[in-house]
Design a binder for these strands. Structure first.
Lengths: 224, 224
DNA sequence: GCGACTTTGTGCATCGGTTCACAAAGGGCT
DNA sequence: AGCCCTTTGTGAACCGATGCACAAAGTCGC
């Protein structure tokens, strides 16, 4: 780390959101034995503009070689490190309904640095079941489980009505990163990061554009 | 439609993405019997800034009353109409693994204008099963099913390797809106809208910020 | 019917992000 | 060793989105 290290402790949010994309493309290339890649090729693989890709990478440091491109392995390492994937993150999933179950079994979680360390639910019917090799624990044990397993990221897959309460409780025991699948706006202190995934919102956005294409509500057909 | 109708056939993308949020907050208020709401209150409920909310709504038209606020029912109707939720959208889910199953059973889909009209999978083991009241059809029937059921939005919940092929096939029969859960960058003509939901990317973004809080990679411990 | 009060709708400054376009840097061929 | 070719890294213009702050518009009480 002696040579170039302009790692600006301020990487733009938009860049952070794309790094995982680059990482995935790079993993694919590494598996296919590609040693070196140009910004142009990597940009195509990740579905972005090459200038944007270069600017994104330049925020991490100067890891390319002019006239050649980027060393795939090295770049994988640098991005992984920047994203914090060189360490192991323990994730708890709260709410083991259909979605929670799907998440527990989702391979993509485990794949890169994340480990589902606990499943928690309120329904006595499912508490005690084994899902994806894990015992489902009771919601009363929430705080204890989080501490015991060193959980630092919580995935909320509860019904909407329960989300805020669970959220408050995990924050109270020190969790500061939450991935929320419940269709509610969580209120949290601003030291806590919440990311939200909302299936129904995504569909609504698609419907909006689809409607536009088909011709709007009180619109005559209008090819544009 | 005689009075105010400045509905600018160009609503900013950022606004479109927030309309579903407002709609949800408004539905909650309607259920609680609230008749009228100010931009300030609605903004709080949706978790945004009130000036932003007013500007967003102003893109749809001038539906508020100064000194009073917005009529909840009326605004629900206007936003629904703008998003195209006053019509019924038939959705097909391709890939009935854990995730596809969870999506099929997800209440939020049906709730507002969307109807899961078909389930399709390649695995003979699940073809013929009934999930969420629907028969799972074979992938060979994909095109036929889409046409027969009038599907206009396709949800891809297949393994990554199958996603592009399914995508090409549904586009070939006229689908122009796709919600992709597979961790791949789909390549599509630009007449087609793709929205992507990627669980693993969301986690990686959280990990990045979590790492920052805990003290960066080559940083000493720093409590905050 | 009038004045005080409330709340919308928007002009304007600002900001973050995207894209272009090119100079600087490095590799490889002769 | 020197030249040419490729590709990076970034300055600068541009674009869309955000948020402030206020005038215009309308309600409600008297």
């Amino acid at each position: 780390m002696s040579p170039s290290q302009p790692r600006d402790r301020g990487i733009p949010e938009a860049t952070v959101a794309r790094l995982p994309l680059y990482l995935r493309a790079l993993h694919g290339m590494a598996e296919r034995g590609v040693a070196t890649v140009s910004s142009e090729d990597l940009a195509v693989a990740a579905g972005v503009n090459s200038a944007k890709l270069r600017k994104d990478l330049s925020h991490l440091g100067s890891y390319g070689t002019r006239g050649v491109g980027y060393d795939v392995e090295y770049l994988v390492y640098q991005i992984s490190r920047e994203l914090g994937l060189t360490q192991d993150w323990a994730v708890a999933i709260v709410g083991v309904g259909n979605l929670g179950r799907a998440l527990a079994n989702y391979g993509g979680f485990v794949s890169r640095g994340f480990r589902v360390a606990a499943l928690v639910d309120a329904d006595p019917e499912v508490v005690g079941d084994t899902i994806a090799g894990l015992n489902v624990e009771h919601i009363d044990e929430l705080e204890a489980v989080i501490k015991r397993r060193g959980v630092s990221i919580v995935v909320l897959a509860t019904p909407a009505a329960a989300a805020q309460e669970v959220c408050d409780r995990v924050i109270a025991v020190g969790v500061t990163s939450i991935l929320n699948f419940a269709p509610v706006v969580l209120s949290v202190p601003d030291t806590v990061d919440v990311r939200k995934v909302d299936l129904s919102i995504e569909l609504q956005i698609l419907a909006f554009h689809e409607q536009r294409k088909a011709g709007g509500p009180l619109m005559a057909v209008d090819s544009q």
